[in-house]
Design a protein around this nucleic acid. Structure first.
Lengths: 169, 169
DNA sequence: AGGATTTAGTTCGACGTTGAAGTAATATGT
DNA sequence: ACATATTACTTCAACGTCGAACTAAATCCT
């Protein structure tokens, strides 16, 4: 865990109080929401990274692997990977570089477009992705500390934000 | 914006479908929640970084500045900053280094504890923090794309997760 | 055709975060 | 008092992300 300090009060609620005391009541809730999202991301992503690290993976690379695993041909143009994962081209290049270095993925020129590159998942990649998924399901995904109802509500609200931010239609 | 691709479908809902198709229904919702949190964090933090960048700040450094601004004496031990912001000591050192380099903050030895360091905010720091806050309130915090009711619900659910993760009592 | 533009990837530098190792000062314990 | 912890911070290397600049290969346009 990045930080193990347990505070006797909620630091974000305290910040919201400060916001209101300074006459920024209109913005207090938005500040609280954004700060909370950042913190919860740290917590949850930290757990996922911890589970995936023993497999020599990071969560970002794991996501690439799963995307390839689920694709029809086991391969996909790098650009499409970035779109699906909502991540920039440079990040995709970086992830594929490392996956390729570990023999989990390989590159080949896109036969239909000479400037494009296809990444395809190797057998080792398929194997490792499966093992990492079992570990993640068991120790992280199934273990989200929320009732199914609350988790549903949270998922829906986050979906609204994603849609309104223009991620999808 | 890191990515400007608008997909014709929700990529996370699609991943959840794959999870269920592979017999991991128990974990599908948790996977969706975690992936969504990661993505929403990217979106919201990206907006905040964009607003704060013209002031020569990052959001992480902005948070440190505000914490000092709100403190009684305008100063605080580095360790306490890390606790409140829930980040590791190395991150605090890094943030203070840069803030100090920009003349927004200064260090001094803690008179009550020779191994401790106090960071105090300069007048320039106070000024810049005020300006950045106005911009953030206007363009990010007030503009969270959720009804007050939904924002409240979201904040509460995230608070539950933070509390259960051990951030505070 | 043929030059201009758009698109796909790569490379580079900057930044925040993390974990591990290292240093200095204060607490502890006998 | 003195050796042993513990605490507060710093330093370092690794990683992912981002933006900007760059290359190469389509695609457009007249």
């Amino acid at each position: 865990m990045p930080t193990s300090a347990r505070l006797p009060f909620d630091p974000i609620a305290e910040a919201m109080r400060q916001w209101r005391d300074h006459g920024w009541s209109e913005a207090a809730l938005g500040m609280g929401v954004i700060t909370s999202v950042i913190r919860v991301q740290q917590i949850l992503a930290g757990r996922a990274e911890g589970v995936v690290r023993p497999f020599g993976l990071t969560f970002a690379r794991y996501e690439v692997l799963m995307l390839l695993l689920f694709s029809r041909q086991g391969e996909m143009p790098l650009g499409k990977i970035g779109e699906r994962l909502q991540v920039g081209a440079a990040s995709v290049t970086n992830a594929i570089d490392r996956l390729e270095g570990d023999g989990l993925v390989r590159r080949r020129v896109n036969p239909n477009d000479g400037r494009g590159v296809l990444a395809w998942i190797t057998d080792r990649g398929r194997n490792l992705a499966g093992q990492a998924t079992d570990a993640l399901n068991q120790n992280v995904f199934k273990a989200v500390d929320l009732s199914p109802t609350d988790a549903d509500t949270l998922f829906a609200l986050l979906g609204t934000l994603r849609a309104r931010a223009g991620d999808f239609d």
